[in-house]
Amino acid sequence: MKKRYLYLLLLPGVLFLTIFMIVPIFLTIGTTFFNESGFTIQGYLDFFKDRYFIEILLTTLRVSLFTTIICILLGFPAAYYISKLGKRTKAIMLLFTIFPLLTSPVVRSFSWMVIIGKNGVINKLLLSMGLIDKPLDILYTPTAIIIGLVHLFLPLIIVTLVGVMENIETDLLKAAESLGASRLAVFSKVIIPLSVPGLVIGSILVFVGSFTAYTTPALLGGKQRVISTFLYQNAITLNEWQVASIVATIMIAVTVLIISIMNGLAKKLNPKG
């Protein structure tokens, strides 16, 4: 009786997702391994011989890596500061963090076009101060993509880290202090190790998110392709569905790979707790 009840509740959702998500995804992956004569990995072999594609893949990985590192470097101290604030101020700061997170990525990427464009705020400022004599080319470069992605994902890592840091009992910090730890020692020996789980989850979210983000590179990258814009270009502009399917499969594979590597890393860094 109870069992049937349970299935009844879960079945509609499971069926829906299976038909409209799982099947399309697996078909997309599946078709890349077959041609007229049966099973093949020729498509992938051709792909990894293609300099242009390798270039795009490496650029995307590099951009994602930089984005992740910058997000950690900016986000960790800020999250620590926020987690130490009083209840009210903390709530306000969290609202300020969550607001950009909920704001349309089109809006957020567009705002950077206004800032780093040729006639943008930064160039105007630097020109008027006489620090440069012709506008810098930031927009439509990998740097622009990194800036946009950091802006996109920084709130995510802050919010994740605040969640983890809030849960570090203050008694632990006091205990460390009473044992002679300076503020710096408390930070490096207690807070950082205990934040590792949040740091790992946050890094996964940022890295995978940057690796697969579309809007930001589409707006800020110009001619500079990354893997997601490459996928879109093949699917829509070039109508190369087989190529697009292979790119899609590679993206899924990299995503899975990154998540498992990071999880493995997390286990190693923090065997207990």
Binding site: G13, L17, F20, M21, P24, T28, T212, S228, A248
Partner: peptide, 24 residues
């Protein structure tokens, strides 16, 4: 089952969109 229901967040959106285009 829980992971299954959350999985649409984990699949890259741009891939998911392509799969939708191709099959749906």
């Amino acid at each position: 089952i829980n992971a299954f229901f959350v999985s649409p967040i984990l699949v890259p959106g741009i891939v998911l969109g392509f799969a939708f285009l191709r099959y749906i």
